[in-house]
Amino acid sequence: MAGSLEFIKSTTYSGVSSFSITDCFSAKYDVYKVVADDIVTSTQAFLRLRFINSSGTIISTNDYDFADLFLKADATFTQRIYKSVDDIFDFNLSDGSLSGGAGNTIAEIYNPFDTSYTNLSWEASNIYSSTYGVGLKGVGVLKQSTSITGMHFLTNTGTVTSTIKVYGYK
């Protein structure tokens, strides 16, 4: 009997400022789970997300909205609200090469392949300022009526090492 969380693709990148995972969304599934674990950056950096359309183009136009909450163990939480920007900036915040402090993000991507807006939600955990735990919970949307087939990740500074795994909900 087949299970309901089906593995599609896994990609590991090491020491790069950007990378793509192509052909991971299709008509086979409506909802996807993306697991990004062991996120380590060369310096404190955000791991940003853009989507790739069915023509293979990385969408970098100001068509993303997102909102999230940074939950800090040591301080007042921070809300971030962005409309009409060119990426999901806060997919993860990594504190660089802090020993042991590899961050993680789990995201749910809704209906990327059909020609409607692509919505997502995500939660993440990491260390910031070398010492303190931080969680992140967010929602976002790509406001283009277009078919999405992949993802592109990039840092705002420095390089990143991570493994990205994509699953489909059956």
Binding site: D38, A102, E123, G135
Partner: peptide, 18 residues
């Protein structure tokens, strides 16, 4: 609750929950 990196002795162990 998602639990991360539990078996990796070189990393901290994280959780996210709802």
């Amino acid at each position: 609750a998602y639990l991360y990196n539990l078996g990796d002795s070189s990393k901290y162990s994280f959780a996210t929950f709802h």
